[in-house]
Amino acid sequence: MAPSHDPSTSADAAPDSAVSFSLEGVRTGFLTCIPVALGVAGYGVAFGVVANQAGLSVAEAALMSATVVAGASQLIAVELWADPLPVTAILVTTVAVNLRYSLMGAALERWFRHLSPTQVYGSLFLMADENWALTVRDLKTGSGRGAFLLGSGIAIWTFWVASTVVGVLAGGVIGDPARYGFDFILAAVFLALAADLWDGRSTFVPWLVALATALVASSVLPGRWYILLGGLAAAALEVIRYDA
């Protein structure tokens, strides 16, 4: 007798073996992420302007965006840019900001466990907050598109690097990017993604814990440690709730 099937749980209970890595997944990820990548481009222009003001050339700013692919840490590095370069301060601060990616990567493990190391790490290199959220949403539907993260990451990377170049070239004309609201673009993108990831009342508690922890940490700790601590607090709460 065949086991019964509960359609209400099929999305989250899709077998790992159903996850594949294909060109179709890359294409779907790229096209799905274009609207979000356009928002990221606005933030990229702002970064390019700031990089120009710090004295970076077009090639230097573009190289940073192409190899780092992390807006917050790049802005921090540029803000700390000086002669001599404070290498230790930049490294410590950017590590604190980017440690959240370890949590985000861990959240994808259930789907990525049967992909090859090249597929996994190649995709993770292009992982940003925005396309990670889109990838989680897509995989939770049971699509099995293991290449969605790579495709959406390519969209983010392309728009991020291109907009950085635009920002550097236009730096002398634009001036302070906050005058045009560029500083709010990324916040607006995150709000839209958060609304899309809302999963009912069960989502509210970890979000509230993350917010409260981040607010407290930002008031007592220097730098950007509040980003990591907020994520860790929410993750710890979820582990306790589901293991209890």
Rank of each mutant, 00 (worst) to 15 (best):
A2C: 11
H5S: 06
H5K: 10
S8M: 12
S8W: 13
S10I: 08
S22D: 10
L23V: 12
E24T: 12
E24G: 13
T32C: 12
T32E: 10
C33E: 15
C33H: 15
C33T: 15
P35K: 08
V45F: 05
F47I: 04
A54C: 02
A54N: 03
V58A: 14
A59L: 14
A62G: 07
M64Q: 04
S65D: 03
V68W: 02
V68E: 03
V69C: 02
G71A: 00
L75M: 14
E79D: 15
A82Y: 09
T88P: 00
S102D: 06
S102V: 14
A106Q: 11
R110K: 13
F112G: 07
R113C: 13
R113G: 07
S116R: 15
V120S: 04
Y121R: 15
L124H: 11
D129C: 09
D129M: 08
W132T: 05
W132P: 08
A133P: 05
L134Q: 11
L134M: 13
D138C: 13
G144E: 01
R145Y: 09
I154H: 10
A155D: 10
I156M: 15
I156G: 09
A162R: 13
A162W: 12
T164R: 04
V165Q: 08
G167Q: 03
V168R: 04
A170E: 14
A170H: 12
V173W: 15
V173P: 08
G175Y: 09
G175R: 06
D176F: 05
I185S: 13
A187F: 09
A187K: 02
A188N: 07
F190M: 02
L191H: 00
L191R: 01
L193K: 02
A195C: 09
D199T: 08
G200A: 11
G200L: 06
V205P: 04
L208D: 02
T213H: 07
L215F: 11
V220S: 02
V220I: 15
L221T: 00
I227T: 04
L228G: 01
L228K: 02
L228A: 08
L232K: 11
A234V: 05
L237I: 00
Y242K: 00
A244D: 00
